Every structure is written in structure tokens, then in C-alpha cells.
Amino acid sequence: DRYEFNINGVHFTIDDAEEELIKLIEELLKRGARAEEIEEVIRRWER
């Protein structure tokens, strides 16, 4: 599934997002994580 979200006006799209990654990102968003922090999480996840 495609997952899309915005952080401070920056648009992100993840194709074939796994449910666990989506939950992790949503938790980070609730905590007010910065875009750079979430980008790093996504990079690590994709390795």
C-alpha cells in the first residue's frame, strides 16, 4: 500500500509501506518528530 503524510509542509510518500513502519511513523508524528528524524527511520527500515 502507498502511505502518504506531511511534516511541516514536506510531503512524503512510501510505496509498499509495511504496517509496522506506518505505525512507527505515526507514533513519531504524535511525538512531534522532525522530518529529518523520520527520514532517518525510513532509511534504516529500508536497509
Score class of each variant (00 low, 15 high):
E40W: 03
E36V: 07
H11D: 10
A35C: 05
K30V: 11
N8R: 03
R44G: 14
L28H: 14
L21M: 05
V10I: 13
E37S: 03
I14P: 01
R47F: 15
E20N: 08
A35W: 09
R47Q: 15
L21E: 00
R47P: 15
A17Q: 09
K30T: 13
H11A: 10
W45L: 01
E19G: 10
G32P: 04
N6W: 15
F12T: 03
I38V: 13
L21F: 06
R47V: 15
H11L: 12
L21K: 01
E39T: 10
D1K: 14
E46S: 03
G9W: 01
L24Q: 13
V10W: 08
A35E: 06
D16L: 11
L29C: 04
E27K: 14
I42G: 00
E19F: 11
E37F: 08
R31Q: 13
R2F: 10
I7K: 01
E37R: 03
E39V: 12
W45S: 01
A33T: 09
I22N: 01
E4G: 02
K23C: 04
G9Q: 05
I25G: 00
A35D: 05
A33G: 06
F12Q: 02
I25N: 00
R44D: 15
E19H: 12
N6R: 04
I25Q: 00
R34I: 10
E37Q: 08
E19W: 10
E26H: 13
I25W: 00
H11F: 11
N8L: 07
L28I: 05
E39I: 13
R31M: 11
V10Q: 12
I25D: 00
E46G: 02
H11R: 08
Y3A: 02
R43M: 09
G32C: 02
I38S: 00
V10K: 13
V41H: 05
G32N: 08
I25A: 00
N6A: 11
Y3I: 05
R44V: 13
E40K: 04
K30G: 11
V10Y: 10
E26Y: 06
D1Q: 14
E18Y: 04
D15K: 11
E39R: 09
D15F: 13
R2P: 10
I25T: 01
L29I: 13
R43V: 09
E36T: 09
I25R: 00
F5M: 06
A35T: 09
A17K: 11
E20Q: 09
R34W: 05
I7H: 08
T13D: 08
D16M: 13
N8I: 03
Y3R: 02
K30P: 02
I7G: 02
E18N: 07
F5I: 10
Y3M: 06
I14C: 02
K30D: 12
T13L: 14
K30Y: 14
E46W: 03
R34C: 08
F5Q: 02
L24F: 06
K30R: 11
T13F: 12
R47Y: 15
L29R: 07
K30Q: 13
I22Y: 05
E20W: 06
E46P: 04
W45D: 01
E40H: 03
Y3L: 06
V41W: 05
T13S: 14
I14L: 11
T13W: 12
E40Q: 06
N6H: 13
A17L: 06
I38T: 00
E39D: 09
R34M: 14
F12C: 04
W45V: 01
E37I: 07
K23Y: 11
R31N: 12
F5N: 02
I42Q: 01
E20M: 08
I38H: 00
N6I: 11
E27Y: 11
I7N: 04
D15N: 12
F12P: 01
E40Y: 04
V10D: 08
L28W: 03
F12R: 00
E18H: 10
R44C: 15
D1C: 07
E40N: 04
G9T: 05
W45Q: 00
T13C: 10
V10S: 09
E46V: 08
N8S: 11
N8K: 04
L24T: 14
E39G: 05
A33V: 08
E4W: 04
E19L: 11
R43E: 13
A35G: 07
E26R: 09
L29M: 11
Y3T: 05
E4V: 07
I14Y: 03
I22V: 12
L21Y: 01
G32T: 03
D16V: 12
R31H: 11
E39N: 08
E4D: 09
N8F: 06
E39M: 12
D1H: 12
V41M: 08
D15V: 13
A33R: 03
V41E: 13
E26P: 00
I22A: 06
R43P: 00
E39Q: 11
I22E: 01
D15C: 02
L28F: 05
I42K: 02
D15L: 11
E20A: 13
E27N: 10
D16K: 14
R2T: 11
V10H: 07
K23F: 12
I7A: 11
L21H: 01
D15E: 15
H11M: 12
